[in-house]
Amino acid sequence: MSFYTVVAVLLVVALTSAVFWVFAPKQNQTVWRSTVILTLSMMYLMWAITYLSQLHPLVEPRRADLRPEFAE
């Protein structure tokens, strides 16, 4: 659980993209390649940014309305 998770997932996504580049359907190949790989990268980016922002947070959740029964 650290920065390396992000790198590892990046490698996985890159590998998946590369595999898809090769095995893309022959018909409408450009559209398939562009769409799938771009989708993968956008989804990865969004996930990575969300994950990174919570990696070392500077603020912590604070609330005063939690019922004491909720304590584990």
Partner: peptide
């Protein structure tokens, strides 16, 4: 969250890990 607290008391959570997917 802390182990116990009074009703209406302001409490702070402690980080124990990273949420894997999303907020």
């Amino acid at each position: 969250w802390p182990d116990h607290w009074e009703l209406g008391e302001t409490i702070f959570a402690k980080q124990v890990g990273v949420y894997p997917f999303g907020l």
